[in-house]
Simulated assay, not measured.
Amino acid sequence: MLLFSILTGAVAPGISLLTYFYLKDRYDTEPIHMVLRVFLLGVVVVLPIMVIQRGLTLLWGDHPFLFAFVISAGVEELVKWFVLYHIIYNHTEFDEPYDGIVYAVAISLGFATLENVLYAVFQPASVGTLIFRALLPVSGHALFGVTMGYYLGKAKFAPKKSSGKYILLAAAIPVAEHGVYDWIMGSGTTYWVWFIVPLMIYLWVKGIRKMNRANARSPFALLVREEEIKL
């Protein structure tokens, strides 16, 4: 019974956040089965990511800066970006800018949810610890996903000459954001909270703005406005 409660507490933040971002799609919500498949892809990539990270740690050591920006943030975000680009980017269901956010958040939260479950099972996990992880690591992964999906959405519907730039930004900016997060959390300073709280506020504010912009650029938004005018 205790294990069930711990697992529920570990899974709930990811599912709740995924539901939140999914329901923010104003015009043409994605098929739930597609979103769940991408969420499960996030679960599946945990193992190869762990193997790559372990290998790089053995090769390069665990220097804080290198670990934060390359071994942790770099590997995790680039693997998620690679999967999204090759499996989702050209999919027919990716038909409006906000879809990039939905799918990027889904794969990010799939990864974060399994990571949270493994932490809860193999580390002493109190209610306070699970709340802490919901507010920081799990939310952080979701917000890095918002950034990635936003730029993939821009790339998908931008002129061909500028789409490459946005595809690169979809990888580079989440790596930078994630790296800063990991750098703060791994710094060892007793004042880490004074840095992580402003960072999370910034990510949430920026993320919500990007969500609004992506929704506003939906091709379905014009159709809705035209219908409203006719009525």
Rank of each mutant, 00 (worst) to 15 (best):
S5W: 15
L7C: 15
A10G: 14
A10Y: 14
A10K: 14
A12T: 15
A12R: 14
P13E: 15
P13M: 15
L17P: 13
T19Q: 13
Y20N: 13
Y20C: 12
F21S: 03
Y22R: 09
K24F: 10
D25F: 04
R26Y: 11
R26F: 10
Y27E: 05
Y27M: 04
T29D: 13
T29E: 14
E30I: 04
I32N: 08
L36P: 07
R37F: 08
R37L: 09
R37M: 10
R37D: 12
L41I: 10
V45C: 09
M50F: 13
M50T: 13
T57H: 00
T57R: 03
L58A: 09
P64I: 00
F65E: 03
L66R: 04
F67D: 06
V70M: 05
I71K: 03
A73C: 06
G74H: 01
G74T: 04
G74A: 06
G74N: 00
V75R: 02
V75I: 10
E76C: 10
E77K: 04
L78Y: 06
W81D: 09
W81F: 02
L84N: 03
I87N: 11
Y89A: 09
N90W: 11
N90P: 10
N90R: 13
F94A: 09
D95G: 06
P97Y: 04
Y98K: 10
Y98T: 06
G100W: 00
I101V: 06
V105K: 00
V105L: 01
V105P: 01
A106V: 05
A106R: 01
I107L: 00
I107D: 02
S108H: 07
A112R: 11
T113D: 13
T113S: 12
E115D: 14
E115S: 14
V117M: 15
V117Q: 12
Y119C: 13
A120E: 12
A120P: 09
V121Y: 14
A125L: 13
V127F: 15
G128P: 13
L130P: 13
F132H: 15
L136V: 15
P137I: 13
G140H: 09
G140W: 07
A142N: 09
G145C: 02
M148F: 05
G149M: 01
L152G: 08
A155Q: 02
F157D: 05
K161W: 07
S162E: 11
S163E: 01
G164K: 09
G164L: 08
K165T: 12
I173M: 11
I173A: 10
V175D: 05
V175R: 01
A176T: 08
H178Y: 02
H178M: 07
V180C: 03
V180N: 01
Y181A: 02
Y181G: 04
W183Y: 06
M185T: 11
G188N: 00
G188M: 03
T189W: 02
T189R: 04
T190L: 02
Y191V: 00
Y191H: 05
V193G: 03
F195P: 04
F195A: 01
L199Y: 02
L199T: 06
I201E: 08
I201W: 05
L203V: 11
W204G: 11
V205W: 08
V205T: 07
K206Q: 14
G207F: 06
K210R: 15
M211H: 05
N212S: 12
A216V: 11
R217C: 03
R217L: 08
R217N: 05
P219S: 03
A221H: 03
L222I: 01
L223G: 00
V224N: 09
R225C: 01
E228C: 00
K230P: 10
K230Y: 08
L231G: 10
